[in-house]
């Protein structure tokens, strides 16, 4: 992904250089994890530098937000925009809990730099239901089938399924399993997840039965 040039930042001294960024990661050593983020604490403390103001289209709304060059979309969504439905399960593109749609295509938001989604449309789990609160057919199907157990992976699975079903509206069970295989469920509730997602595909094709309509 291209590095974004940051022409607006005037506080060079406080800027995080690539070298310092990498050093920070190395410094973490065993604690690398996600330690490489600089995030602003809530409460309007003075900026510690490195951020620039950009506009993002998230769930159909234009959101102004200050982000750092190295900031991931998952971080921006969760810590800047308050959209905590997107979960961080590994922060390294292994588990899919952070999956969101970018221009209708599922992406691991932990591995997408926020700067790269300017001008694109981002959909998170919070933006899936209709404006009046009517659940998306896949959400409704998950409720109807009691899909998922602990549900930490649910947002990611639903976003993957919605993205996959947009291009594969009538999959077989095996095809759908492949379509959502980038998501990990540690409760290993795969059978019930597939039941729910297959029903979601049906609801998308034929509509949600009236008796089953539900608002968020």
């Amino acid at each position: 992904m291209p590095e974004m040039e940051d022409s607006n930042t005037n506080s060079k001294a406080q800027q995080i250089t690539r070298r310092r960024f990498i050093l920070g990661v190395i410094a973490g050593g065993a604690v690398v994890g996600a330690a490489s983020y600089r995030i602003l604490s809530p409460g309007g403390r003075a900026h510690s530098g490195g951020e620039r103001l950009i506009t993002l289209n998230v769930n159909g709304t234009m959101r102004r937000v200050e982000v750092m060059k190295q900031e991931t979309l998952a971080w921006t969504l969760r810590y800047k925009l308050g959209l905590t439905g997107t979960k961080l399960g590994c922060d390294r593109a292994e588990c899919g809990a952070c999956t969101v749609l970018i221009d209708d295509v599922p992406h691991y938001s932990c591995s997408v730099l926020t700067n790269t989604v300017r001008g694109k449309s981002v959909t998170t789990i919070e933006g899936l239901a209709a404006a009046d609160g009517t659940l998306h057919p896949v959400q409704k199907a998950v409720v109807d089938e009691q899909g998922f157990q602990c549900a930490f992976c649910t947002s990611g699975f639903i976003m993957s399924a919605v993205g996959f079903l947009k291009t594969h509206p009538a999959p077989t069970r095996t095809e759908l399993a492949h379509g959502i295989s980038g998501n990990l469920c540690r409760c290993q509730d795969y059978n019930k997840i597939l039941d729910a997602m297959m029903r979601g595909a049906e609801y998308m094709r034929y509509g949600v039965p009236a008796a089953s309509q539900r608002r968020a």
Partner: peptide, 12 residues
């Protein structure tokens, strides 16, 4: 610390 990057730099 105020944020995680500062924590990581401090750990160094």
């Amino acid at each position: 610390a105020v944020d995680e990057l500062t924590c990581a730099e401090a750990i160094e």
